[in-house]
Design a protein around this nucleic acid. Structure first.
Lengths: 334, 334
DNA sequence: ATAAATTGTCGAAACGTTTCGACACTAATA
DNA sequence: TATTAGTGTCGAAACGTTTCGACAATTTAT
C-alpha cells in the first residue's frame, strides 16, 4: 500500500542501495541506471519517509525554538515577531521550526520534548533561558544560536542588537532637541541587553559632560513592562526631579512613563519627551505615538535560521556573532 | 553512546518488549517488573526516540499548518494570529506545528514536504487553499480541520466565523446612529467568508426595508486589501452617490475607504461613518481608529488544534463545525 | 602483460522502536 | 482431575531508510 524504496528498486530493476545512492546523489551511478531509477520514482510518486531516514541519519529536518514562557504571550510581540521571522526563513531551507517554551527554573522533567526525542538538528534560543538548559544542550553537542542574548560562557553563536548604538541615537536626538536633563528607565537587569542599554546611556551622557548617576538612571525594576515604567516615572515626578526627557529601555516601559506623565498633567512632547526601544505595536498605538528605535525583529529570526543552518552544514563556524543595526523612528513623543 | 531501549531492558533484567509495554502502558505487566523498568529508565535518563517510534507507529507527533502564501506575510496579521493560536494550544497537546505555505495553483512538485515525508498526523488549513490539495489530503485519509474556510464538498471539519451575525451587528449599530444610506464594500469573492458577509449585508438591509442592490453593494474586487477599498470608495464618492456609512468586509478595505474619504475631505465620523471587520492592528493604528468586529483569532487557532487532536484520537467525529462569535468594538470611526 | 586503481552495483547489517505470536505459568471452570 | 482462561514475559519480525564492505568489470599505471 505504502510505496517504499523497495518498490522503486523493484520496478527499476536495481538494488535498494542503488536507489538510495541516486536519491542522495552519493557515490557513482551510471547515467543509465540513474535514468531508470528516476523514472521509477516518478512513476510511483515515491518520496522517502522522514522517520525512516531520520532513524539512520540522525537528522530530523527540524529546528527547535526555545523561548522563556513569559516571553511568548499575546502581550509580548517582540519575540513573537522573531519567531515568525524564523518560520519565514526556515521554509526556504527545507527545515521546520518546532516551538517550545520553558520556565525560568530548569528541572529534569522540564526538558523540551524535542530534545528528549532527538527530534531537532539545532536549537534557537531567544531571550534569557535557564543556564542549566544551555548546559544540557551544549553537553549534547547540539548546534545552537542565541537570539538577543549571549550566555555568560561566551563563545556561543548569536544574533544581537546594536543596543549601544540605539541608545546613542536616542540620546543624540534628544540633545539636538535641546534637552539637557535626561533620565533613563530600565528593567530586568538579568538580561544583558538591558545592561547594555543602561551602560550606553551612562556612556553617551558622560561623553557629553552631563551627569549620569543614580539621580537619573533607574534600573532597579525586576521586570521590564509598562508597570515598571509607570512606577519609576511616578517616583521621579513626585520627587519633582528636574527631567525633561525620558529614555526608556523598551516601548512597554515608555508607555508606562507616558501614562504617568499624563496622570501628572505634563504635556508630551511639550513638557516632557519620551523615547522607547524595539518598535513594537505599543509604540504606534500609544497616544502620542512613540519615538523609538526600530529593531528588525523578523530579520533577526531569519538571520538566526540562516546561521544555524550553516553551522549544521558545517559551512559556518560556531561562535559567529551577528549584530543587527537599529534605526531611530521619530514620532510624536519627542 | 546513545542510550536505547535495549540498554534499559538490560539493566532492568527484562526483555526489550517488556520495556516497550511499560512505556506505552499496554498489555499486562506485574507491579514488580514495572518498578524495575521504571527505575532503569530513571537511572539511564532514557527517552524513546521520535523517529524510531514513528517508523513503526506511523505517528509523527506533528500537525501540519497549510496557508496560502499571500496570507502569510508581514502585512497579513489575521492568519498569522491564528497560527500563533495553534502554536499556543498545540504545546499542551504534546504536538508540534509545522507551518508551510502553498501558492494558489497546485502542482505535483508543490506538495508540502511534510505530506510527502509522512511527517504529520493531521492538517490544519487556513483560508482558501487549492481544491486539488484538499483532494490530495482527503485521498490520503489524513484528518484535517479547516479554519475560516469550508470547501465546497461540504462534510469537512471547520472552525468558522459568525460572519452573518457580525455584519448584522455592524449594520444595526449604524442604523441606531441614524444612518440610512449604507454601502458595503467587499473583496475577493472566492472566499466563502466574503460572500457570507456580503449576503448578510443584503439580508439585514432588506429586512429593514432598505435598498440593497448594485447601487450600494460593491464586490467586484479581486483582492481584499486597502487598495480595493480605496478604489471602490473613490468611485462612489466621485459619482456623488448618497452614502453616509460604509460597511467594509474587513479592516484593510476599511482603511482604504478611510483614505479615500480623507482625500475627498469628508470628516469621519461626522460626514461618513465606517466599520471594518476582523479587528487587526490596522483597525487601531488607523486615524481615526476603526469601529470593527472583533474576531477571536488566537482562540480559533486553539480550537482548531483541539478539534484536530480529538479527531486524530478518535474522540471527535470528523465533520464537526464550530462557529465562533464576533463582537462589535466601537471606536472613533462611527 | 601484469598489477593497481577506479567505477558501478549489490547484499546485508544497522538504526531504535512496536507488535505479534508463542510460551510458561497460575487461577478459574467443568 | 482435566480443561480452559487469563497473566506475565519473551524472542523475533517488522517499519523504511542509509551505509559499509565486497565484488566484478573496467581502466590506468608499471
Amino acid at each position: 500500500m505504502n510505496t517504499t524504496i523497495r518498490d522503486v528498486a523493484h520496478t527499476a530493476g536495481v538494488a535498494v542501495s542503488t536507489v538510495s545512492l541516486v536519491l542522495n546523489r552519493k557515490g557513482p551511478v551510471s547515467r543509465e541506471t540513474e535514468r531508470k531509477v528516476l523514472d521509477a520514482i516518478e512513476k510511483l510518486h515515491y518520496h522517502p519517509q522522514r522517520s525512516a531516514r531520520g532513524l539512520v541519519t540522525r537528522r530530523s529536518g527540524n529546528l527547535g525554538f526555545i523561548l522563556s514562557i513569559d516571553h511568548f504571550s499575546k502581550a509580548e510581540p517582540f519575540y513573537t515577531k522573531i519567531f515568525l521571522g524564523t518560520e519565514f526563513e526556515s521554509r526556504s531551507h527545507d527545515l521546520y521550526v518546532l516551538l517550545t517554551t520553558v520556565d525560568q527554573q530548569f528541572s529534569e522533567r522540564n526538558i523540551p520534548r524535542f530534545l528528549l526525542e532527538k527530534n531537532v538538528d539545532g536549537i534557537l534560543l531567544a531571550g534569557t533561558v535557564p543556564l542549566k538548559l544551555i548546559d544540557y544542550i551544549k553537553d549534547r553537542h547540539l548546534p545552537c544560536v542565541f537570539i538577543d542574548y549571549l550566555p555568560p560562557s561566551g563563545s556561543s553563536s548569536a544574533i544581537l542588537i546594536d543596543n549601544a548604538e540605539g541608545i546613542r541615537q536616542a540620546v543624540l536626538h534628544l540633545l539636538e532637541k535641546g534637552h539637557r536633563d535626561l533620565a533613563f528607565v530600565g528593567g530586568d537587569m538579568q538580561h544583558p541587553g538591558m545592561r547594555e542599554r543602561c551602560e550606553a546611556f551612562r556612556g553617551v551622557l558622560t561623553e557629553h559632560g552631563l551627569v549620569a548617576d543614580t539621580t537619573n538612571i533607574f534600573c532597579e525594576a525586576l521586570l521590564s513592562g509598562a508597570r515598571e515604567g509607570y512606577d519609576a516615572a511616578q517616583r521621579i515626578l513626585n520627587d519633582k526631579l528636574k527631567v525633561t526627557a525620558f529614555v526608556a529601555a523598551n516601548d512597554a516601559i515608555a508607555s508606562g512613563i507616558l501614562r504617568a506623565c499624563r496622570d501628572h498633567k505634563r504635556r508630551i512632547p511639550g513638557d516632557i519627551a519620551i523615547t522607547g526601544f524595539d518598535d513594537v505595536e505599543t509604540a504606534i498605538t500609544a497616544r502620542p505615538t512613540l519615538t523609538t528605535l526600530h529593531v528588525p525583529k523578523e530579520e533577526m529570526g531569519a538571520l538566526a535560521v540562516r546561521l544555524l543552518a550553516d553551522i549544521i552544514n558545517g559551512t559556518a563556524s560556531k561562535g559567529t556573532k551577528i549584530v543587527v543595526p537599529v534605526s531611530l523612528i521619530c514620532r510624536e513623543s519627542t
